[in-house]
Nucleic acid binder design. Structure first.
Length: 271
DNA sequence: CGGGCCACCTGGCGGC
DNA sequence: TGCCGCCAGGTGGCCC
């Protein structure tokens, strides 16, 4: 599921059942996801009360009373579900809350991960040390962005996927934001003007905010924590629309490959 | 050091 | 129907 809007949706979904409550028990069904589970994960969290939930980029941060923050990344196919009624071989971790509510982490491809950081020292961890600003905060602005792009020859689409430039943007929202901003994904990063950067940031924020309001995008049947489907995918302008017509120009949406990943765009609209 | 490529995994889909 | 290749919302290691 997981770019910023889907991660935000997942975090918001598990907040009501988890915030202010203690973990009663944890069942871990395999030794690892992309990396091994912390070997003390069960012992460290059982009986601990959750005191805050945060998000940084595509990572969820869950703070506990014992000064440990559980970091969860959903990889490509991870999801968190409250009181899941059907089980699957890919239900890797089940958190049972003090009132009996369960939160199940499911991840068929197992590209996700969980690890601990000391609360307040998150930024010392290598995952966050070099992470760029949150796109929905004022830390992302045109001056900053231009300065990051000025020495980059690689295409702007690739730069938007670089988490050290901006946090949380993935393949869908990079394509969609560039479409709205009328910027070709092929444009060299160092070719982007301050004016264009200003516009691009506005569209990045718009698209992420709209997706969050829609409950994120539900590709491949991915669901929100309460089991409902996000519906932002129905409003994609270019992503996964190869061969279909651009809603603005009427021309065909093209799919190309950049750095090994699909890019969708309208060559007539995006220059 | 920047950037491209590939590996990590499983599953769904289209083509033959 | 069945098999095979290709593709998938991410990240990071390796190699030029």
């Amino acid at each position: 599921m997981p770019e910023l809007p889907e991660v935000e949706t997942a975090k918001n979904g598990i907040t009501p059942p988890l915030l202010g409550k203690a973990i009663q028990s944890i069942t871990i069904n395999r030794p690892n996801l992309r990396i091994p589970f912390p070997k003390n994960m069960k012992q460290s969290l059982e009986g601990q009360k959750c005191i805050n939930l945060r998000r940084r980029g595509k990572y969820i941060w869950i703070d506990f009373e014992n000064n440990l923050t559980l970091v969860i990344h959903l990889g490509m196919s991870g999801s968190l579900t409250i009181d899941k009624t059907t089980s699957s071989p890919h239900d890797h971790v089940v958190f049972t809350i003090q009132d009996g509510t369960t939160i199940t982490y499911n991840d068929p491809r197992r590209f996700g991960m969980m690890f601990f950081v000391e609360t307040g020292k998150e930024h010392n961890h290598k995952a966050f040390l070099n992470m760029g600003p949150e796109p929905l905060s004022n830390d992302l602005n045109a001056i900053y962005l231009i300065q990051k792009l000025i020495n980059k020859k690689s295409p702007i689409k690739t730069a938007l996927l670089d988490q050290s430039i901006v946090a949380g943007i993935g393949n869908i929202y990079a394509c969609e934001a560039l479409y709205r901003a009328n910027i070709s994904p092929l444009r060299p990063s160092n070719d982007i003007t301050e004016e264009e950067a200003t516009e691009l940031i506005i569209y990045i924020r718009d698209i992420l905010n709209e997706a969050i309001i829609s409950g994120g995008s539900s590709l491949r049947d991915h669901r929100q924590a309460d089991g409902t489907l996000g519906y932002f995918q129905h409003t994609f302008d270019v992503y996964d629309r190869e061969g279909q017509t651009c809603k603005i120009t009427g021309d065909k949406i093209i799919r190309i490959t950049q750095s090994g990943r699909s890019t969708f765009y309208c060559p007539e609209k995006q220059m």
